[in-house]
Simulated scan of single mutants.
Amino acid sequence: MIECKDVCFGYGKTKDTELIHSISLSIEKGEFVAITGENGAGKSTLSKLIAGILKPSSGKITVSGADTAKSKNSELARNTGFLFQNPDRQLCAYTVREEIAFGQKALKTGTEEEIYRRTDSIIEEFGFSPDAAPFSLSRGQRQRLALASIIAVEPKIMILDEPTTGLDYKECMEIMRSVQELNRNGTTVVMVCHDMELVLDFAARMVVLAGGRIIADGETLDIMRSRDVLKQASLLPPQIVQVALELEEKFSGRFDFSDVRTADGLAAKIQEAIK
């Protein structure tokens, strides 16, 4: 579904201005992949390259069979939705109803009646007031509206750039549960994220960048347990994983906490060890 081959990108014309260096990456239909790394690692740049917002300086990216360098953004948008870190960058209508209908009309996803029905369904699902002004909503509600507007066009691929930045826990979970439901229904999700707790809870696969290069790619929990990888990327594991690793070190060879990813799972392992 998504194929990157030897992709490089930079705003200048020389190698020393490159932000992305020879990245090769394949993402299959229905995966939930988190792209992580320290600030400046190239995470957002890579996500925008995959979406076709940026074009590679060299190498090739294909998304659903389309070469992003040769395809119009309007064509790529039929299959790929992109949620910006700041929702204010993609809201443009006067009411919630108009905002959710905007993308559907632009991409001609159906008749006027079909768009009307789909818009009403999304408004009801998210609990919006249809006549509310988007910029009168809270930061979290604006992010949910931006997400709802993308969901309305039913993209095959959803790319999220730090989707929960600035949100409280409740708002964060509302966003992520909506994304998780999309993924369960077959949408491929690529999420740029610095929150390791969130990555562990939702992403099955984790790609780690450092200095514009991929330094690790694999099952999320396996990478979370790799101190060397996290150190290279200036990341800290979630607290549960950290505690599990420390217990393994303290009781070396006696107990196995390698599959622990939740507090309940850790408690169960400790009870088992005590017995």
Rank of each mutant, 00 (worst) to 15 (best):
A41N: 01
A41C: 05
A41F: 03
A41R: 00
G42L: 04
G42Y: 05
K43C: 15
S44D: 03
S44R: 01
S44C: 07
S44K: 03
L46C: 06
L46V: 08
L46Y: 02
L46D: 01
S47C: 12
S47T: 12
S47R: 03
L49F: 07
L49T: 05
L49I: 06
L49S: 04
L49W: 02
L49A: 04
I50C: 05
G52P: 01
G52L: 01
G52A: 07
I53Q: 04
I53V: 12
I53W: 06
L54I: 09
K55P: 05
K55L: 15
P56C: 07
S57H: 09
S57Y: 10
S57V: 10
S58A: 08
S58G: 12
S58Y: 09
S58N: 10
G59R: 00
G59P: 10
K60A: 13
K60I: 13
T62L: 08
T62P: 06
V63F: 08
S64H: 15
G65L: 05
G65C: 07
G65M: 05
G65H: 06
D67N: 14
D67F: 08
A69C: 07
K70G: 10
S71N: 04
K72T: 14
N73P: 10
N73G: 14
N73S: 15
S74H: 15
S74D: 13
S74L: 13
S74W: 14
S74R: 14
E75D: 10
L76F: 06
R78M: 12
R78D: 08
T80K: 06
T80L: 10
L83R: 03
L83D: 06
F84H: 00
Q85K: 04
Q85F: 05
Q85C: 06
Q85L: 06
Q85V: 06
N86Y: 11
N86T: 07
P87F: 03
D88A: 09
R89I: 12
R89F: 13
R89Y: 15
Q90V: 03
L91A: 04
L91Q: 02
C92W: 10
C92G: 11
A93K: 11
Y94E: 15
Y94I: 14
T95H: 09
T95C: 09
T95W: 07
V96Q: 02
V96D: 03
R97A: 15
E98L: 08
E98R: 07
E98A: 11
E99P: 13
E99N: 12
I100N: 01
A101G: 13
A101M: 08
F102C: 02
G103L: 02
G103K: 00
G103P: 00
Q104T: 14
Q104C: 14
K105R: 12
A106F: 13
A106P: 11
L107E: 01
L107F: 02
L107H: 00
K108F: 12
K108G: 14
T109Q: 01
T109A: 03
T109D: 03
T109I: 06
G110R: 00
G110V: 04
T111W: 02
E112S: 13
E112I: 12
E112D: 14
E112W: 10
E112A: 15
E112K: 10
E113L: 10
E114V: 13
E114W: 07
I115K: 00
